[in-house]
Design a protein around this nucleic acid. Sequence first.
DNA 1: CGTGTCACCTGACAGC
DNA 2: TGCTGTCAGGTGACAC
Length: 276
Amino acid sequence: MPELPEVETVRRTLAPIVGAKLASVRTSGLLLRMGSEIPEPALRALVGERIEALRRIGKYLLLDVSGPTGILVHLGMTGWLRIFPAAEPQPAHTHLVLGLDRKRELRYSDARRFGQISTYQRADERSHPALKVLGPDPLDASVDGAKLLYDNARRRNVTLKALVLDQGVIAGMGNIYASEALWISKLRPSTRSSKLSAKAADSLWQAIRQVLDHAITHGGTTLRDFVDAAGSSGEHADYLHVYGREDEPCARCKAKIRRTVQQGRSTYFCATCQPG
DNA sequence: CGTGTCACCTGACAGC
DNA sequence: TGCTGTCAGGTGACAC
């Protein structure tokens, strides 16, 4: 479900819980990604503290709580976070409920349980194993993304799609926006990264920024079940150029969009205006 | 170092 | 209606 724009949309729509006091913690007891469990005792220890800020690094959400320990959330494929009145019935697959003030609850639900919830030390968040391996966030204005892409591309020889999806290079790109960014920058997803020119790296970076900004503006992409923290769907699916559009005409050249599989995942591109 | 494949888990949907 | 197969926005382990 969620790539960077969807996680950012969730972060923004969670704004109403900033300042709220954590009153209770309840979990389903089921295991999440790779058998990881929700750290209930560590979360219980946060009861009584206030949520000070919500941040995002790549696809990870960071809940800064008033003490030294924060809450780290990754939504996986089907995870969502929503603010509910406590009286609302609990939806299926709810694995974590944080009771807040004013009879509100922050609920985490995740049908496939590919998500992850853990805690981090605010003074040293980058020492968390999940955050340690992430490249910079593409919305961080201080990042020279063109150089970052170029350097990584030249020193390795992966496909451009794999490069863009590598969270250690840039944090936050996923399967939808990888195809979209490569289409915008007219680069073939199967092209080897070692052949990337500095100019192409620059245009790829611009495309990444553009597609992420655009998707955030539209509240993310809802293909089936993504909703923000208020329960609203995103509108960006209407603006996708290639993803999910096999056999439809390319918006630039009218050739049929093609679908291939790379690393076991669908890639969409235009063979005419994304030459190899 | 690179890629391919599978695994994790559930639900939606197409086709029979 | 119900079965089967396929696919899904993510990530990590493993074999080659």
